[in-house]
Design a protein around this nucleic acid. Sequence first.
DNA 1: TCGATTCATCAAGAAACATTGATCAGTTGT
DNA 2: ACAACTGATCAATGTTTCTTGATGAATCGA
Lengths: 108, 108
Amino acid sequence: MYVLMATAVARDRDKAVRFFHALSDETRIRIMERLRDGEQCVCDLTEALKTGQSRLSFHLRVLKDAGLVTDRPEGRWIYYSLNPNALRELEDLVSWLTESHAASVRRC
Amino acid sequence: MYVLMATAVARDRDKAVRFFHALSDETRIRIMERLRDGEQCVCDLTEALKTGQSRLSFHLRVLKDAGLVTDRPEGRWIYYSLNPNALRELEDLVSWLTESHAASVRRC
DNA sequence: TCGATTCATCAAGAAACATTGATCAGTTGT
DNA sequence: ACAACTGATCAATGTTTCTTGATGAATCGA
C-alpha cells in the first residue's frame, strides 16, 4: 500500500517534470500557441515562427516525446496537433502540485 | 493596441517559460511537494530530501527567482513557503496555453 | 568572545540542451 | 525516372544547467 502510493507519487512527479521541461522553452510555447487553434504542418510553423526547419523539428520532437502533441502524416506533410488528454493531465498535475496533500490529522 | 496585445502575449509566454523551467526538475518538484504542507527551513528540506545543502540552496534559488516560493529569515533559519499568487498565475497560464485563442470570425 | 549552526555563494567540472548545416528518406507532379 | 518538396536525423559546436566541495556571513548559546 505504501509502495503503491509511493510509486503513484513518483509517477506524477515524473510526468510533471517531463511536461514542464517540454514547456520550458519559448519556441515550444510558441508552437503550442499555434497549435491551440488547430493542427499545423511543419512548414506552416516554420513560416509562422520564422525559423529553421531542423530547429523546429527538434522542438516538435521534444513536445511529441512528452506526449503533448501528436502527429499525423498526410502525403508529404506531417500535421501536428495538441493532445487534449495530455493537456488535461497537465492541468491535473498543476492542481496536484498546488493543493495541500497533508495526511491531515486535524479536522478539516 | 496591436502592440499592447503583442506585449501582453510576450509577457505571458515569458512567465510561462520561467515557471515551467523552474518546475522542470525533480528536486524542485519535491521541494514544492514539501512546501505544499507548510513552510520549511532549508535544514528540514535537506533532511527530508536527503541531499546536500548547497544543492538544495541552488534549487531553492531557482524557485525563488521564478517567484514560486518566498523566504522568511528568522534567527539563523530561513523558512521557505509557496507563493499562492504565483500558483494562481501558474494555473492561469496553463489555461491560457490550453484554451483556443482564435480571433474567431465564426459565430461562437 | 569562541565555537557551532544555518544558509548563501562561488569556482570548477560534468551533464544536458539547443542550434546549425548537411544528408537522407518518402511523396508528388511531370 | 527525375526533380522538387517536406520533414527527420545526424554530427559538431556552443550554451545552459547541475553538482560538488570550499569559503564566508550571520546568528546563537556558552
